[in-house]
Lab assay of single mutants.
Amino acid sequence: NQASVVANQLIPINTALTLVMMRSEVVTPVGIPADDIPRLVSMQVNRAVPLGTTLMPDMVKGYP
């Protein structure tokens, strides 16, 4: 099973992602692959992302 990117904390709308905000976890449904975490750094979320939420491609501005 492939690990996905999961919010490690509440991420407010328009926040630029940092490594501490994300963790990898095997979840269903599958979200953004954990391998993409380095690419996500400094990209902004377009909505508030609660703790434990799987990051989906449509939540991150400019992804992929």
Rank of each mutant, 00 (worst) to 15 (best):
N1E: 15
N1I: 15
N1P: 15
N1A: 15
N1R: 03
Q2E: 15
Q2V: 14
Q2P: 15
Q2W: 12
A3C: 15
A3S: 08
A3N: 15
A3Y: 15
S4E: 01
S4R: 02
V5G: 01
V5M: 01
V5F: 00
V5Y: 00
V5C: 07
V6Y: 00
V6M: 04
A7S: 14
A7Y: 01
A7F: 01
A7D: 02
N8W: 04
N8H: 13
N8T: 15
N8Q: 10
N8A: 14
Q9K: 09
Q9P: 01
Q9N: 09
Q9I: 06
L10K: 07
L10N: 12
L10A: 12
I11A: 01
I11P: 01
I11D: 01
I11E: 02
P12I: 04
P12Y: 05
P12E: 06
I13K: 08
I13V: 13
I13F: 09
I13L: 13
N14T: 05
N14D: 10
N14Y: 14
N14H: 10
T15W: 05
T15S: 10
T15L: 04
L17F: 01
T18R: 08
L19Y: 10
L19N: 07
L19W: 10
V20S: 14
V20R: 06
V20P: 10
V20G: 10
V20K: 13
V20C: 09
M21Y: 06
M21S: 04
M21I: 03
M21C: 03
M21N: 09
M22S: 01
M22E: 03
M22I: 11
M22V: 13
M22P: 00
R23W: 03
R23N: 12
R23F: 06
R23A: 08
R23K: 11
R23H: 06
S24T: 14
S24D: 12
S24Q: 14
E25P: 00
E25W: 06
E25H: 05
E25F: 05
V26M: 06
V26S: 12
V27T: 10
V27M: 08
V27I: 06
T28C: 15
T28H: 08
T28N: 13
T28A: 11
T28P: 02
P29Y: 03
P29G: 03
P29T: 06
P29N: 06
P29R: 03
P29V: 09
P29W: 03
V30H: 13
V30F: 09
V30D: 15
G31W: 02
G31F: 02
G31K: 00
G31N: 01
I32V: 12
I32Y: 02
P33D: 11
P33H: 09
A34R: 04
A34K: 04
A34T: 08
D35L: 09
D35T: 11
D35N: 06
D36C: 13
D36E: 13
D36Q: 15
D36L: 14
D36S: 10
I37M: 14
I37Y: 03
I37E: 03
P38F: 09
P38H: 10
P38I: 06
R39M: 13
R39H: 11
R39P: 03
L40I: 08
L40W: 02
V41G: 01
V41A: 05
V41Y: 04
V41K: 06
S42T: 10
S42D: 13
S42C: 10
S42R: 08
S42L: 14
S42E: 06
M43C: 05
M43R: 10
M43H: 15
M43A: 12
Q44F: 12
Q44T: 15
Q44G: 04
V45H: 00
V45R: 00
V45W: 00
V45N: 02
V45T: 11
N46W: 07
N46R: 08
N46M: 15
R47C: 07
R47Q: 14
R47W: 05
R47A: 13
A48S: 10
A48Y: 07
A48E: 13
V49Q: 02
V49M: 05
V49R: 02
V49F: 03
V49P: 01
P50R: 07
P50I: 09
P50V: 06
P50A: 14
L51P: 14
L51C: 05
L51T: 14
L51Y: 13
L51R: 06
L51V: 11
G52L: 04
G52K: 04
G52V: 02
G52M: 04
G52E: 04
T53E: 11
T53G: 11
T53L: 08
L55H: 01
L55W: 01
L55S: 00
L55T: 00
L55Y: 00
M56P: 02
M56R: 07
M56D: 04
M56A: 08
M56Y: 10
M56L: 12
P57N: 07
P57V: 10
P57F: 09
D58E: 13
D58I: 11
D58Y: 14
M59F: 14
M59A: 09
V60L: 11
V60A: 00
V60K: 01
V60E: 01
V60G: 01
V60D: 01
V60W: 00
K61C: 13
K61S: 13
K61V: 13
K61I: 11
G62Q: 06
G62E: 14
G62P: 05
G62H: 15
Y63A: 04
Y63R: 05
Y63K: 04
Y63P: 05
Y63V: 06
P64G: 15
P64A: 12
P64D: 13
P64K: 15
P64T: 14
P64S: 13
P64H: 14
